[in-house]
Amino acid sequence: MTTTKPQPVIDKPLLHYGRRTLDRTGPGTPETAYRILDVAPLTPHIGAEIGGVDLTEPIGDELADELRQALLEWKVIFFRGQHGFEQHHQVALAGLWGPPEANPFFPKAETAGVSRLAKDAMAIGMENIWHSDHSFMAAPALGSVLRAAEVPSAGGDTMWADMAVAYDNLSDEIKERIEGLTAVHDWVPSWGAVMTEEQIAQMRSKLPQVEHPVVVRHPRTGRRTLYVNEPFTTRIVGASEEESRELVDHLTLQARIPEYQVRFRWQPDSIAIWDNIATQHYAISDYFPQRRVMERIAVAGVPLS
């Protein structure tokens, strides 16, 4: 008697044929005319360097509106040469989008909501992974403001991936299969790897597993966005173990496609602001034994739908 080897749930082609859909905004969105900001795109659909603004000066209503619009349009925006930019400026800047959100794993590293993230010659560091901040929380962070305090002479770049574009380019078959599905997000497989069982139990009481839609509607644009990531999305609710693993693997790997990404080379006093629902990011750990010091503040989010 012969047996037939089970076919994979998802057939993964080695090559992509034809053009990709790389839309900066959703269908029907009008073009933005900026009166204050100088917007220099880094790719056609994600990432732009912003000129014409000194973020150490008070931010008036018109400038605030343009900054918010630029972030919605480009998903991550960059500023260079912001000398004299200090923590109170960072708090005020992040406040344009909402109140600060504490990182539950670095409470002692924060001052006024700003986390100081240092990697120096004493710490080789570890390879990063594509992720969306705080997706293991019921209301994940809406965005982040990150300042480069000290950077290596080479290396230490950060990349962002556009997850609305990632959704747009899924096959019709996959879109149909994931419509209405939810996924479990959990911090234990990642953060728990460096914690004791007692520490995990204590933190678990504060941070239980949560579920989010596999495809979310962006809370401010309504655009459909793929919302799964490698470290925190553990399974698809209601799917068999095999189907869940196949789907999670296929969907999380979409962030690795270069056409969906932008890469930013840091300089001292550079600043990045990113939309944490629309993007995932990856900090490249290639600069040992040099030093890299960043200061970040996250913006509190809302439950996703």
Results as ranks from 00 to 15, higher is better:
Tyr34Thr: 07
His88Asn: 14
Val151Glu: 05
His16Arg: 09
Val210Leu: 07
Leu304Trp: 04
Phe136Cys: 12
Asn229Tyr: 14
Leu71Trp: 05
Ala154Pro: 04
Leu142Gln: 08
Asp61Cys: 05
Asp61Thr: 13
Asp65Ile: 03
Lys175Leu: 12
Gly180Ser: 14
Arg263Phe: 05
Ile10Gly: 04
Arg263Ala: 11
Phe85Ala: 13
Glu243Gly: 10
Arg224Asn: 04
Glu176Gly: 01
Leu42Glu: 12
Ala109Asn: 11
Ser144His: 13
Arg223Glu: 06
Pro213Phe: 00
His250Leu: 12
Ser190Lys: 12
Val188Lys: 13
Thr196Gln: 02
Phe232Cys: 09
Tyr167Val: 02
Glu230Lys: 10
Gly180Leu: 09
Glu57Gln: 15
Arg291Gly: 02
Asn128Ile: 00
Arg235Ile: 05
Met159Pro: 03
Asp38Glu: 11
Tyr167Asn: 00
Phe105Glu: 12
Ile277Cys: 03
Trp160Ile: 02
Ser132Lys: 04
Phe78Gln: 05
Phe79Leu: 12
Val216Lys: 01
Pro99Val: 11
Leu170Met: 07
Tyr227Phe: 15
Gln209His: 03
Met163Ala: 07
Ile10Asp: 08
Pro289Asn: 13
Leu93His: 02
Ile297His: 14
Thr182Ile: 10
Ser144Arg: 02
Arg19Val: 07
Arg35Ala: 15
Gly143Gln: 00
His83Pro: 06
Glu31Phe: 08
Ala272Phe: 09
Val188Thr: 12
Gln82Pro: 05
Phe136Pro: 01
Val114Asp: 02
Trp160Cys: 10
Tyr260Arg: 01
Phe78Ala: 00
Gly155Ile: 05
Leu251Met: 03
Arg235Tyr: 11
Leu304Phe: 13
Thr43Trp: 02
Glu86Thr: 04
Ile271Gln: 12
